[in-house]
Amino acid sequence: MEEQFELKLSNRTKSGWLIILGAFLLTVAIDFVGTNLIHGDEWQFLWCLAVAFGSGYSAFRLLKKRMVYPALVSVESDQLTVQNLANTEANAVLFTKVASYRYMVTKGVHWLIFKMFDGTKLKISANTNFGEIGNFTGMVKSLEQSAAQFRMQNSTAMLPDRSFF
């Protein structure tokens, strides 16, 4: 029983946060240079306002382009495979290595967090603030069905981890 879902996932790497920091610092630098070059209080205010809104919008568009990628997620009876369609990179999550998993939605971000037996965590996320994400909840329901079937044979792996909220 393999099901496939086309999703738009969020890229949560450190380089994404460096882009945000760089955009913020560039905005501050442009505001500083502009206010020193423009002599006149009303023009300085308008310059700062235009740069702030323009760079904010540009940063959002850049983040949307850099931090969202199309992916093909396959839910199988013993694993979950995430294939990045932008660079054809594929990652597999074997159910035998997963101690527990949790699905949650916070501020428009859908999270699927796997806690491995070795203590590491693997996070898959999709951000609705950047646009349509696809059928993420359908993928989670399919994963829960596959995990329930898998737990019949292996009761210590793929346990659903519930939030305390």
Rank of each mutant, 00 (worst) to 15 (best):
Phe24Gly: 08
Gln153Val: 10
Gln79Asn: 13
Phe130Asp: 03
Leu94Pro: 04
Val82Asn: 01
Glu144Arg: 13
Thr128Glu: 15
Ser142Ala: 15
Val140Asn: 00
Ile38Glu: 02
Lys64Arg: 14
Lys121Leu: 08
Ala126Pro: 00
Leu159Asp: 04
Phe45Thr: 12
Glu42Met: 12
Val98Lys: 04
Gly119Trp: 05
Cys48Ile: 09
Asp31Val: 15
Gln153Ser: 15
Lys97Asn: 08
Asn127Glu: 03
Ile30Asp: 07
Ile133Glu: 05
Ser155His: 11
Ser58Lys: 13
Val109Glu: 06
Cys48Phe: 10
Gly34Thr: 03
Lys115Cys: 08
Ser146Pro: 01
Gln44Val: 08
Asn87Leu: 08
Gly16Met: 10
Thr81Cys: 08
Phe53Val: 14
Thr13Leu: 04
Leu9Ile: 02
Ser163Gln: 04
Gly54Ser: 05
Trp43Gln: 11
Thr13Arg: 08
Lys14Asp: 13
Lys64Tyr: 04
Leu9Glu: 07
Leu7Gln: 00
Val75Pro: 03
Ala86Lys: 15
Ala148Gly: 06
Phe150Trp: 11
Phe53Thr: 13
Asp31Pro: 06
Gln149Thr: 13
Glu6Val: 13
Ser74Gln: 09
Lys97Asp: 12
Gly54Phe: 05
Phe60Cys: 00
Gly16Pro: 06
Asn11Cys: 10
Ala157Val: 06
Val73Ala: 03
Lys64Val: 02
Lys123Phe: 12
Gly54Met: 04
Gln79Ile: 01
Gln145Leu: 07
Thr27Ile: 08
Val73Pro: 00
Ser10Arg: 15
Leu26His: 02
Ala23Phe: 12
